[in-house]
Amino acid sequence: MEASSSLIWIIIGMAIVTYIPRLIPMIYLSDKQLPSWLNEWLGYIPVTVLAALLFPILLVNDQQISFSQNPNLLAAIPTFIVGFLTKNIFITVLVGMGSIVGIRLLIG
């Protein structure tokens, strides 16, 4: 590993390039009236970005799309059900963690 002083620079660099995309739209768009189609487009971002983040985690196993013997996908079934029933973040995350442990024991 490199010397720690360069690690500090890596952290600072990462912090800057992470902050810029968070900051710029907030500053430039928060006082503008956007056309209605653009507003509508921005309104779909929460659902599409979360689906885009989640599905690959569930469907890709060992770098390949897999529908069988895939622990992440199997554990998602009880997690989704409990999520729909309870609408509770904490309980759902706990059920997810419990499910993956159980499924790994079963299909190990």
Binding site: A51, L54, T79, N88, I89, G96, M97, I100
Partner: peptide, 18 residues
């Protein structure tokens, strides 16, 4: 301990909210 499933678990419930 299933710690690696906390993130997908969180994404699942947050997606449900949307």
């Amino acid at each position: 301990y299933g710690l690696d499933y906390a993130l997908p678990g969180m994404f699942i419930i947050l997606l449900i909210f949307q």
